[in-house]
C-alpha cells in the first residue's frame, strides 16, 4: 500500500520514467531561411482557418506555426533572423493550470493537449502564455468550395469561441504509434513527421522521442547549441532551438 504522499508523487511527476515516449521537437535556427513553407504545411494539415486580409490586419490570424522575423542592426548593415514559433509544449505549462475547465492539460507523453470540446473560451490560457502561441476562433471558420475538399479528416474543425494551438500533429503521432505497434516495435526516428517538419525544405525541423537516447532529437538536445525560449520563465519547453548566428542568411 502506497502512502498518499508517494502516490501523489508518482501521479504528478516523472512522466519520463513511466512512459516510453516523450515527444520533442528541435528547430535548427541556422537552417531556417524563413520561407514559410512550414506555415502552409501546418495550415493544410490541421484545418487551420483562413481569416482573410482584414482580420489578419487586426492580428487575428490563426497560424499555429508562425515565422517571427527580427531585424538586427541599422541600414545598410542589416541582418534578418527568423524564428519559427509554435506551441512549446512546456512541461510546466502556465496555460494549463489557469484553465477553469481542464480544456488544456498535460498528456503522459509530454504534450500540452487542447481539448476543443471542453473549451469555453475564457482565453485565460492565451493571457498566460509567454510565447503568445494560442489562437482564438473569433468567428466561425469557413471553408468554401473547393477548399472544403482538402480538409484533413483526422482533425476536427474548431467551432467559434474556442482556443486552439499547435498539437505537434497529434494525429500523425497516433498513426505512427499504431503502425509501430502493428509491427511490434517501438517508434523510431522518421516514423513520425509533423507537417512542418515534412514540409521544411532545409530540414530545419526534427521531431522525435527524447526518451530514446539513440534518437536524433536526444543528440541534438544535448549538443550544446540547444536552447529553450524564455528559459528564465521556468516553463521547460519540449520544443528546443539550436542557436543560430554563425550563418548569415540574408545580410
Amino acid at each position: 500500500m502506497r502512502t498518499l504522499k508517494e502516490s501523489i508523487k508518482v501521479k504528478s511527476f516523472n512522466y519520463k520514467k513511466h512512459n516510453d515516449y516523450s515527444w520533442s521537437m528541435i528547430i535548427d535556427l541556422d537552417r531556417c531561411n524563413g520561407c514559410g513553407a512550414c506555415v502552409i504545411g501546418c495550415q493544410a494539415e490541421n484545418n487551420v482557418a483562413t481569416v482573410g486580409e482584414e482580420e489578419v490586419g487586426k492580428k487575428r490570424n490563426m497560424h499555429w506555426l508562425r515565422i517571427e522575423r527580427y531585424i538586427e542592426g541599422e541600414y545598410p548593415h542589416v541582418k534578418v533572423r527568423f524564428l519559427p514559433m509554435m506551441c512549446q509544449h512546456c512541461a510546466q505549462a502556465p496555460c494549463e493550470s489557469v484553465c477553469p475547465v481542464y480544456a488544456t492539460y498535460h498528456n503522459p507523453e509530454g504534450l500540452n493537449v487542447q481539448v476543443y470540446n471542453r473549451c469555453i473560451g475564457t482565453r485565460f490560457c492565451g493571457n498566460n502564455c509567454p510565447y503568445s502561441v494560442r489562437y482564438f476562433n473569433w468567428f466561425d471558420s469557413s471553408f468554401p468550395e473547393p477548399v472544403n475538399n482538402q480538409l484533413n479528416p483526422d482533425v476536427s474543425v474548431r467551432e467559434r469561441g474556442v482556443m486552439e494551438k499547435c498539437s505537434l500533429c497529434m494525429q500523425r503521432i497516433r498513426r505512427g504509434k499504431d503502425t509501430a505497434k502493428d509491427e511490434g516495435r517501438e517508434v523510431q526516428d522518421g516514423d513520425i513527421q509533423p507537417a512542418c517538419a515534412q514540409t521544411c525544405p532545409t530540414g530545419a525541423i526534427t521531431f522525435g522521442n527524447i526518451n530514446d537516447h539513440e534518437s536524433k532529437v536526444y543528440k541534438m538536445a544535448h549538443s550544446g547549441r540547444a536552447i529553450s525560449l524564455f528559459e528564465e520563465k521556468g516553463t521547460h519547453p519540449a520544443v528546443k532551438y539550436l542557436k543560430g548566428g554563425t550563418n548569415d542568411v540574408i545580410g
Binding site: 501523489i8 508523487k9 501521479k11 504528478s12 511527476f13 512541461a91 510546466q92 505549462a93 502556465p94 496555460c95 494549463e96 493550470s97 489557469v98 484553465c99 481542464y102 488544456t104 492539460y105 498535460h106 521547460h236
Partner: peptide
C-alpha cells in the same frame, strides 16, 4: 482534484 487526477502545469493533483 485528487480523484480526477488530470495533470496541469506540472502541479500535483492535490
Amino acid at each position: 482534484g485528487y480523484i480526477m487526477n488530470l495533470i496541469v502545469g506540472g502541479k500535483s493533483p492535490f
